[in-house]
């Protein structure tokens, strides 16, 4: 913008300007998270197991987008040893509009086949017309502190990591589906090896693309894992370890999903968990979920 314009800012233009600034901020955050996987893929080969890859974020500002703040917090957490991190998620149900961008982006990120869904959004209508509201409840894996799904596994293929994430070792899983049954939140799915383009002239190539869960390449090939395995949300562990937010957090259009390290008392997630309107699902089961809801 020229100097002349700057001196002649009308109120309307100011609004426009701040809007533009807002969009810029968002786009920088979204862009960073969208472009980085491509950049990192080449890096991944060199430093496959290296945690906390430095991602250059724009200079910190007081009114910056919450996505950027959370990315800074992830970087801070990654600087610590893994056992000192404690990942958790907060979903603000008042902000959720039920767009399912999280559901879809998760399917895209993890190349989920039919019948496998990590983050469905439940819908409930309350009241009768004209006094009626509709609520939406996204449900990722809640990564319980006392998960009922891990002890039942006969082969120790699913377990809780030191940073709180409940993972499945696809190579060990025998596909008995006991964990699927044992989850009180229905957060586990079974991969039957289906394709969306089944019964069409050909299985489209985009369905055959490998996914990169747990930081390694899983090709969709016949009955090989993860086909015939239990599958679940892993907070996009492969992204977190590269300093990125889970895909559902990035794509949430209402910024309703927050993610971070609970052990970091400065983090936004710690702030939100201390709110009076926080709740967790099925507390009576004693599972102590690490996914909180603001109602």
């Amino acid at each position: 913008m020229s100097e002349k314009n700057e001196t002649l800012v009308t109120p309307q233009e100011e609004v426009k300007d701040s809007r533009l600034g807002f969009l810029k901020k968002i786009s920088s955050g979204v862009f960073a998270s969208l472009l980085l996987p491509a950049v990192l893929k080449t890096k991944q080969i060199q430093a496959a197991e290296q945690d906390g890859v430095e991602i250059s974020l724009p200079e910190q500002k007081d009114d910056e987008d919450v996505i950027l703040r959370m990315m800074r917090e992830i970087q801070r957490a990654l600087a610590k040893p893994v056992e000192e991190r404690h990942w958790a998620m907060v979903i603000d149900l008042r902000k959720c509009v039920g767009c399912r961008a999280c559901t879809v982006s998760c399917i895209a990120e993890n190349k989920l086949p039919p019948g496998v869904v990590y983050r469905p959004v439940m819908e409930e209508e309350i009241g009768t017309y004209p006094n009626v509201t509709r609520t939406y409840l996204p449900r990722p894996c809640l990564h319980c502190s006392k998960p009922p799904c891990t002890p039942v596994c006969p082969v120790r293929a699913t377990y809780k990591r030191k940073d709180g994430i409940v993972v499945i070792d696809y190579e060990k899983c025998i596909g008995c589906r006991y964990c699927v049954t044992a989850c009180p939140y229905g957060a586990r799915s079974f991969d039957f090896g289906e394709f969306y383009t089944n019964n069409t002239p050909q299985i489209e190539s985009y369905e055959m693309q490998a996914d990169f869960e747990y930081g390694r390449e899983w090709k969709r090939d016949g009955k090989k894992s993860p086909v015939n395995n239990a599958r679940k949300c892993h907070f996009c562990l492969h992204r977190i370890e590269k300093g990125l937010l889970p895909q559902c957090v990035v794509t949430c259009i209402g910024r309703a999903t927050y993610f971070g390290d609970v052990n970091d008392k400065e983090s936004i997630i710690s702030e939100l968990i201390g709110r009076p309107n926080v709740m967790r699902l099925k507390e009576e089961l004693g599972t102590e979920p690490n996914c909180y809801y603001l109602v």
């Binding site: 469905p120 439940m122 409930e124 409840l137 449900r139 989850c183 229905g186």
Partner: peptide
């Protein structure tokens, strides 16, 4: 498992 989970995803 949760209210509405049956309708949250169609397959």
């Amino acid at each position: 498992a949760l209210k509405g989970l049956d309708k949250a995803y169609q397959d």
